[in-house]
């Protein structure tokens, strides 16, 4: 995949199954966020080759909104401020679009508010936030909590959380992680993209992948994250330069 003629993602081979939590780690500029937005359908780049199959569908063939209605949720690293669009109107439209896609009737205003109250409680989000415009004037922490709240509302099958931990203090981190854990089930899957191992103390991954220079260079269990935290990314870089590419083929 290329952006402005520069190759960003080179070799990614990843299989995510229901009930799994995958963590993707890697240094700055390794292509983590590009991977996340690619999954959600932002056409900022040219896909030179490759395919993404999601529940039997070729993702490259469908629009961002259709991906969303099929259960793909992207928690943005930098959630977008949309002045003038109220949170309530925004979420109501989104949720009812999901329902329409599944052949369900739209929720009435009161039912919608009920659902919203429930989910707010579930993810411990301040009730004031939903009275404002989408992300406008939210603090960094509030924006991230708002992403998890939206995830709770839309109940995705595959949630991709892009650096959801960045800019959070320890309390907010716990709230966000708790939210993610509560929403986890055997029917959905989560991809957590992060820099640090910190978040993975709260969201325990089944698999950890290391992305470096557009490639997944190492995969392993949750202990890989701990090793990374201890040794730093330089360790991976060194290992690559010694051995070329390392891929744990034993992994599915």
């Amino acid at each position: 995949m290329e952006i402005d003629g520069k190759e960003i993602l080179k070799s990614i081979n990843l299989e995510v199954n229901k009930g799994e939590v995958h963590a993707i780690m890697g240094p700055n500029g390794s292509g983590k966020s590009t991977l996340a937005t690619l999954l959600a359908g932002r056409d900022l780049a040219n896909v030179v080759e490759g395919e993404i199959t999601y529940m039997g569908k070729n993702l490259f063939e469908i629009s961002p909104e259709e991906r969303a209605r099929n259960g793909i949720f992207l928690g943005f690293q930098y959630p977008i401020e949309i002045p003038g669009v109220s949170m309530v109107n925004f979420l109501k439209t989104a949720l009812n679009e999901h329902r329409k896609y599944r052949g369900q009737d739209p929720l009435s205003a009161s039912d919608f508010l009920k659902v919203m109250q429930e989910k707010k409680k579930l993810v411990e989000i301040d009730s004031q936030l939903t009275n404002r415009s989408v992300n406008e004037g939210f603090s960094g922490g509030e924006k991230k909590k708002n992403e998890i709240f939206q995830m709770a509302m839309l109940e995705p099958t595959l949630a991709i959380l892009d650096e959801t931990d960045s800019g959070l203090d320890i309390d907010a981190l716990r709230i966000v992680a708790n939210g993610v854990n509560k929403l986890k089930s055997s029917e959905n899957a989560t991809i957590v993209i992060t820099h640090y191992q910190r978040l993975l103390d709260y969201i325990i991954p089944d698999y950890v992948h290391v992305l470096y220079d557009g490639r997944i260079v190492k995969s392993g269990g949750k202990e890989l994250a701990i090793e990374l935290e201890k040794k730093g990314y330089d360790w991976i870089k060194k290992e690559i330069s010694y051995n070329g590419m390392i891929l744990d083929k034993s992994l599915k």
Binding site: E65, R69, I82, G84, F90, E97, V134
Partner: peptide, 24 residues
């Protein structure tokens, strides 16, 4: 960016455009 954000939440592109225009 705002348009994309709305679409990742499942909102139709046309509807998303209207929402943004209205917000404008």
């Amino acid at each position: 960016d705002a348009l994309f954000y709305l679409r990742t939440r499942g909102i139709e592109e046309n509807e998303a455009r209207l929402m943004l225009m209205y917000a404008f």
